[in-house]
Design a protein around this nucleic acid. Structure first.
Lengths: 140, 140
DNA sequence: TGTGTTGTAACCGTTTCGATTACAACGACA
DNA sequence: TGTCGTTGTAATCGAAACGGTTACAACACA
């Protein structure tokens, strides 16, 4: 099991936009060149980031820009913008209600599964776009 | 993105085995009946749990049993037994080395991604099979 | 030897993913 | 107003993963 690469692509898009929006017109083709994927992929992810209010896009003329300060966007925001809004875990659907385990397994597990997902999301919220941009600039 | 249902199936298998191993012969058909999936699926997952040392299986005669006390098996053990051993996140593979972002995004993100995965695994390790069995028995 | 079970291989249909082509809609500017 | 570059979106493709299912050899025990 793996998350789709849309998540890291989205992060790449945001870091690039933050670093270049003052100097360049940040188009899907420009981003695709840095990321190394097809421009249509970039446009789709960019659309999700725009719908989530993380970036603004100028239709027609072209170019993306951050819709809010880099310190206010966390990896969790990016994750939620890009991944389908569904539970992380997939439960088998037909446990046998005649079995004491089958009847109760769902209830017993549910709180644990949400705890696990929450732990992951809490850690995602610890990193801001600002930190990623600063660290990238420092290395470059 | 979702984890495959093999994880919850594996947990179901272990709880069932813990509760019934004294009284019944816990075969793949028996488990499949409680879980509501095909016996072959059960045999495959059971094989992974056996390879990880969580259960023992008596080939030929049939029947699974816990290979260690229920308090010593956590959800993390089950997860690792059942999910392929690979990173949780999938990185896009061809970032442009000529771009300061493309060149460094991997390094900048890597530690964050492993932190996120670690947070998830830490939370998984908090729940033991014993807790799940006790809670299921209590409800039944 | 016969029976019940496990371990595997093979195949199927569905879904998801990323890649790609194609084209309408849009905004700016000559 | 007409052209041009860009975005938004639909359609299609091949590959991979999943779960379901059938089939059968290997195994242990009575």
């Amino acid at each position: 099991m793996q998350f789709s690469s849309r998540f890291t692509i989205a992060v790449h898009i945001l870091v690039c936009t933050a670093m270049f929006q003052e100097r360049e017109k940040v188009t899907s083709a420009f981003l695709a060149g840095s990321i190394g994927v097809n421009p249509v992929i970039v446009r789709n992810v960019l659309g999700q980031l725009s719908a989530a209010g993380l970036v603004g896009i100028r239709a027609g003329v072209g170019g993306a820009h951050l819709a809010r300060p880099a310190e206010e966007t966390t990896l969790l925001d990016v994750f939620r913008a890009v991944e389908k809004d569904e539970a992380l875990f997939h439960f088998h659907e037909n446990p046998n209600p005649l079995c004491p385990v089958g009847r109760n397994i769902h209830t017993v597990m549910d709180s644990r599964l949400t705890d696990i997902q929450s732990a992951m999301e809490r850690q995602m919220a610890e990193t801001t776009l600002r930190q990623l941009v600063d660290e990238t600039q420092e290395k470059a």
